[in-house]
Design a protein around this nucleic acid. Structure first.
Lengths: 332, 332
DNA sequence: TTCAATCGTGAAAACGTTTTCTTAAGCTCC
DNA sequence: GGAGCTTAAGAAAACGTTTTCACGATTGAA
């Protein structure tokens, strides 16, 4: 049925070894190489990657395990990882964990069975903690989320600094009563919360924080509750794109205005943030840079497995828009 | 180095065949099965999927080839496909073509080399046309885009009907001078344009259409040009989420209002459309249903390869929001 | 001219499974 | 109690490659 390298060899009048060498750029005379190419064309031969991987013991494949493929942050990172992997001659297997530790375990194991050469992984907090104990037979580079203790290569945002930027910006615009809404599944929520709290205290302000599930609905419900009970702050900081969307939806649903009734700032410069309300002030993450860097860290780790662990911390950029407009003209 | 089924067999004091049978649920005495399970645990054995696939000649894998993984429409479909594939015990390889025919060819070939059992594919117009000639050794189910002539299973939106709904809605709201903006890379653009034009003519209106590249920037530039030259229509219909975003960005940049200066309607009920301006009137596609149906068509095709080609056409839903508010109170 | 080194090629082994074939042991049934 | 079945287990073949090994021919140096 399916045509194998032996069929090609027969058609070309050479041995299978010669076909293999001709196709992989080995030493073959020009004459035989031409015969082989012709035979490949005539037979419609397609190499069997499973056989190739089995024999050569290298999969030329990496795994990319993210929490949510519908989240623009991860798709943007995935694009960058894929482009970079392609340049290095590697395939990418993309996996979706839904922030579910069981799925994470399942995929980490699957990656072993696929014999991937390495994995780029955005773990939940639960998994990040026990990653060191897992003894997987491939190197891992963490992205976006990294436990401080985990002895893994990682590339992350300077979350504390970014949260500080937002707080200081809001403070500069005249806001004093500022609340923070953080995701409870990842370490980024923790770190951004820490930066937020520290910055508030440094400014002599009373920090107020809530942790919720990383979903639009959870954020929406939380804000709706604030607004309906009438004890809403002057401004709110949302620790990722999902929560930010929930915040804006709740404010619209309540018929309130941004920033007059509630100022808004958040993380992730997704394209819709420019269009929502008066435009949303956000921290822009260097998504492409994160993907590229992760891939490079992985390649270097593969090259020198013994090298010391490296953690790359990238800075965010504060994009100021109307959602944090000064509450009243500032005094000079 | 890596532990194989032979090592497990040795550790359990049985033959490799027995290990294989024990792990795949074959007939093995309870006693030996326990020994095997213990040995697997002790040795940390992980089956090698390449070897398994090579020997059993089935990959248990399907390919999902989409145009743009950053487009929420495709990520939503991908999610549904993955969930359904998982239920059927299949893995999914996700590929990104960037609407680039060369990448499409590359991935179609790669899927052959991976020996996938089938492929779900959203092709560009260029590739949709020559798909029949390609003689690939796996069945294909097309999604979102399908050439009329292509003898392939497919699941698509009723594009003409959806475009008609938008036109009739705008007409009902009092708009007369309506322009359409369509993507030039896919068959959906063609079909939506056809529906748009037919509906306009049926209503005795003069249709005006533009085809642009499927990107935010292209749409933005086109609308910006309309607005700056002062010959903008009363309303514009955008044929997908990307173009819709470009339209809104251009209107905001020009300092115009929706719908007073320009009413807007489009395709794809992405979550941001609720938040942009006064909310955008859109056609909601049954994304999950599309993914599920595609997977089912593929499974049925695998079961009965000879069955006649099926094309499933799903209806869209018109979600009315502020961007198409009546231009002036309608007369009773 | 001869010996060693290099080169292109084919034969055969190897990769880690699953599956077919064989075999030995335990049954059932007259 | 032996002929015929069923059953569980092992031996060995097979999947489609790549790679090692062996071999003869060509080349280069002495």
């Amino acid at each position: 049925m399916t045509v194998s390298i032996k069929d090609v060899a027969r058609a070309a009048g050479v041995s299978p070894a010669t076909v293999s060498r001709a196709l992989s750029g080995g030493k073959v005379s020009a004459e035989l190489r031409a015969q082989v190419e012709d035979a490949v064309h005539r037979t419609g031969y397609r190499p069997n990657l499973s056989a190739r991987r089995l024999r050569s013991q290298e999969s030329q494949t990496i795994g990319l395990i993210v929490a949510d493929i519908c989240n623009p942050f991860f798709t943007a990172v995935a694009r960058a990882v894929e482009d970079e992997a392609y340049k290095a001659g590697l395939r990418v297997i993309l996996c979706n964990t839904d922030e579910n530790p069981e799925k994470e375990s399942m995929y980490l194991q699957l990656m072993e069975e696929e014999r991937v050469t390495g994995v780029i992984f955005a773990p939940t907090r639960a998994t990040a903690g026990r990653l060191g104990k897992l003894r997987l037979n491939y190197p891992i580079v963490l992205i976006d989320r990294a436990d401080i203790a985990s002895g893994q290569d990682a590339v992350v945002l300077d979350n504390a600094a970014a949260a500080t930027m937002l707080v200081e910006h809001l403070h500069g615009q005249g806001y004093r009563h500022i609340a923070g809404l953080f995701g409870n599944a990842s370490t980024t929520g923790i770190e951004r919360h820490a930066g937020f709290t520290a910055a508030m205290q440094r400014l002599g302000l009373q920090p107020e924080s809530r942790f919720v599930a990383p979903s639009i609905e959870a954020a929406e419900a939380e804000i709706a509750s604030w607004l309906s009970h009438g004890h809403a702050p002057e401004a709110v900081v949302a620790s990722n794109g999902l929560l930010l969307m929930g915040v804006v939806k709740a404010i619209r649903a309540a018929g309130k205005r941004i920033p007059e009734d509630l100022a808004v700032a958040g993380f992730d410069n997704e394209s819709w943030t420019e269009l929502a309300g008066p435009g949303l002030t956000v921290i822009e993450q260097p998504v492409a840079e994160i993907g590229r860097t992760a891939m490079h860290l992985l390649l270097e780790r593969l090259e020198t497995p013994g090298a010391p662990v490296r953690k790359v911390v990238l800075g965010g950029r504060c994009v100021v828009r109307g959602s944090t407009k000064a509450v009243q003209p500032l005094l000079a």
